[in-house]
Design a protein around this nucleic acid. Structure first.
Length: 234
DNA sequence: AACCAGGAGAGAG
DNA sequence: CTCTCTCATGGT
């Protein structure tokens, strides 16, 4: 976090940012996701992949009745890879889904996993090949109901542009900064991440400062501060 | 027609 | 620990 000099038009903190986004975009329903297993599949399939392509893959899995742990345990890797092809990286992802399914079965099912604590589950998820920090946290937050803040490329970009994070910060640094500045509530974590994505898709794509952006003032404010500090042009 | 999308991992320095 | 490359498809 960078320190902003006191002025009449200061930057914002994570809690204020949330309220602004909520006021602008309203409640998000990302994974109303009836089925936790489907959420897990989606979390893996969406790695560096547009959600529209993930839906095609999920749709094919649904047709084959494969959105269940029991069915997924029986299907061959080749068939699985073929079905999820539209989501890209199908060799990595099919292996990851298989490994994930085996782990879930070994744990005695998803409901059983939910009974364990957050830190313990996260550690085991990260041991599954193909599961990194973001996917692990997304699964914990949206499928298992654990309080884990999901940090993604959008989160860093937006927080960077309003001056809350510098570009060099790591995943855990960004995550720690956020959770230490907002209330620890599952629904808040779920909404916050979804709102950041909604905002990024709507306004925060290419240019650092675009017109019509609900965060235009804070972005502009930070750019001015940044120019003064580094004596540099964006 | 390049560029990117709700990343992760291996390898190099 | 940080930087770079690869994995792959589909939409703009």
């Amino acid at each position: 976090m960078r320190d902003v000099e006191d002025t009449e038009s200061p930057g914002i903190d994570p809690a204020q940012l949330y309220h602004r986004l909520f006021r602008q975009y309203g409640p998000q329903h990302w994974w109303p996701a009836d089925d936790p297993f489907e959420v897990i599949l989606g979390a893996i399939l969406t790695q560096n992949t547009a959600w529209a392509n993930v839906e095609k893959a999920l749709s094919q899995l649904r047709q084959q009745r494969l959105i269940s742990l029991e069915a997924m345990l029986c299907v061959s890797m080749e068939k699985l890879a073929k079905l999820i092809r539209p989501a890209g990286f199908y060799r990595h992802k099919s292996a990851c889904i298989k490994a994930m399914s085996n782990w879930l079965a070994q744990q005695g099912g998803i409901e059983n996993v939910k009974r364990q604590n957050r830190v313990s589950i996260r550690k085991e998820l990260l041991d599954i090949p193909g599961i990194g920090s973001e996917t692990a946290d997304a699964i914990l937050l949206y499928a298992l109901g654990k309080c884990c803040f999901v940090v993604d490329a959008y989160t860093r970009r937006i927080l960077g542009r309003v001056g809350l994070l510098d570009s060099g910060s790591s995943y855990s640094q960004a995550q720690q900064f956020l959770v230490s500045n907002i209330d620890k509530e599952i629904s808040l974590y779920q909404q916050y991440h979804a709102l950041l994505v909604a905002h990024a898709k709507a306004h925060c794509r290419k240019t650092p400062l675009c017109g019509g952006c609900p965060l235009f003032d804070v972005c502009r404010y930070f750019q001015e501060v940044h120019k003064l500090e580094t004596n540099q042009i964006f």
